[in-house]
């Protein structure tokens, strides 16, 4: 069974191209155009990884992460793919379930590679999840 990926990005062109790229690699990809739609998806579907943009209308990436952490439903690993962030993973990120950060633009092959690795590594540790709840 192939891994299921949720792509959350408000840019429909980019989201579509990401979806196609990942689908060609054999993944099952669902696209949500903002954080609110993404949250709805996580409630009904179990994902192996979420590729998340940060700057989005309605519910932005950071808010999405907080709501996801507090939501109590399934918590897949999150890989941030955004132009508005440095590629430096901190404890705070980890606490929110972030396993990798890719700064746009990123080579498609590298993106696929890092997605594969993130899926293989699985979600964040329970300790990190607790830290996220406390925050």
């Amino acid at each position: 069974m192939s891994a299921h990926i949720l792509v959350i990005d408000d840019d429909p062109i980019l989201a579509g191209l990401l979806q196609l790229t990942l689908e060609l690699e054999g993944y099952d990809v669902t696209v949500a155009n903002d954080g609110a739609a993404g949250l709805e998806q996580t409630k009904s579907t179990k994902f192996d990884i979420i590729l998340l943009d940060l700057v989005m209308p309605k519910v932005d990436g950071i808010k999405f992460l907080r709501l996801l952490a507090k939501g109590g439903f399934s918590r897949p690993p999150v890989m941030i793919v955004s132009s508005a962030i440095e590629e430096k993973l901190t404890d705070q990120h980890r606490a929110l379930g972030v396993v990798d950060i890719a700064r746009k633009p990123i080579e498609p092959a590298e993106l696929v590679q890092r997605t594969k690795r993130a899926i293989a590594n699985g979600p964040t540790s329970p300790a990190a999840a607790t830290l996220a709840e406390q925050s």
Partner: peptide
């Protein structure tokens, strides 16, 4: 910077595809 990074990402992905 931010907007072009986004657009370049799309262009990179598109070119690859």
């Amino acid at each position: 910077d931010l907007q072009l990074r986004n657009d370049f990402e799309a262009i990179l992905l598109g070119s690859q595809l």
